[in-house]
């Protein structure tokens, strides 16, 4: 088995990037189409505003194209794009909320927010209770209720399925910071989703 066949995406991607760098518009368009939906989703999660998200989407790919020669190839192309997109999205947030600065390093609570308010078992397959559309609405609303530092880490790690290391790199955070934000995000979401997914008839003390 060749290296290329073990990692088809990576080698294909490196080739596309180098072709795009040499001015091949089609190669760059292929990269855009591969990641536009994910970047748009991420931008919507961070900005929580459709118009801003569209701007972020455009700015991300325009900047990526402009600075393609700065992409080192040490990280995945997507991680590099995320880094650009997150910076663009944060700039949008700062412009909107001129009364306070926004960053992914906003002070975050320590500990208190991990305390579960409701402990109830869920159905085995809670998603079956809702239509696909309802599920997407429930899940999106829950993510949007998280503070930005948690939201971004959660989307990259658990929705986009980046590794801890890739998330740290994309957000310029330490690995322990990614881990602690992810944990808090997961526990807060678990808490929020319990009201939709808990097994009927259970109450908080059913197990005691």
């Amino acid at each position: 088995m060749t290296v290329a066949s073990q990692q088809p995406d990576v080698s294909d991607e490196a080739a596309l990037v180098s072709q795009a760098r040499e001015g091949d518009a089609k190669a760059f368009a292929t990269l855009v189409r591969r990641y536009e939906a994910k970047i748009f989703r991420l931008a919507q999660h961070v900005t929580q505003n459709r118009e801003d998200a569209e701007d972020v989407l455009q700015e991300t790919f325009l900047k990526a194209y402009e600075h393609l020669d700065q992409f080192q190839g040490n990280s995945k192309f997507y991680t590099w794009l995320v880094r650009i997109a997150v910076n663009q999205a944060l700039m949008k947030l700062r412009k909107r909320k001129t009364d306070r600065s926004v960053s992914l390093d906003d002070t975050i609570d320590t500990g208190e927010d991990t305390v579960a308010r409701e402990i109830a078992s869920w159905d085995e397959n809670p998603e079956q209770r809702y239509s696909r559309e309802e599920m997407n609405q429930i899940l999106t609303a829950a993510i949007e209720s998280l503070a930005p530092p948690y939201r971004t880490v959660f989307v990259l790690r658990d929705v986009d399925e980046l590794s801890t290391e890739e998330t740290a790199e994309a957000l310029d955070l330490s690995i322990p910071a990614v881990k602690s934000r992810l944990l808090r995000a997961r526990l807060q979401l678990r808490d929020k989703l319990t009201r939709y997914f808990k097994r009927k008839g259970d109450d908080a003390f059913a197990y005691l």
């Binding site: 869920w122 696909r132 997407n136 959660f154 929705v159 399925e161 979401l189 678990r190 989703l193 197990y207």
Partner: peptide, 19 residues
């Protein structure tokens, strides 16, 4: 219960459609 429901939380998000 927290462990089990957090596991399910992660699972439902992994299956989420991209916009």
């Amino acid at each position: 219960v927290i462990c089990d429901t957090t596991k399910k939380t992660i699972r439902v998000y992994k299956g989420m459609d991209p916009y």
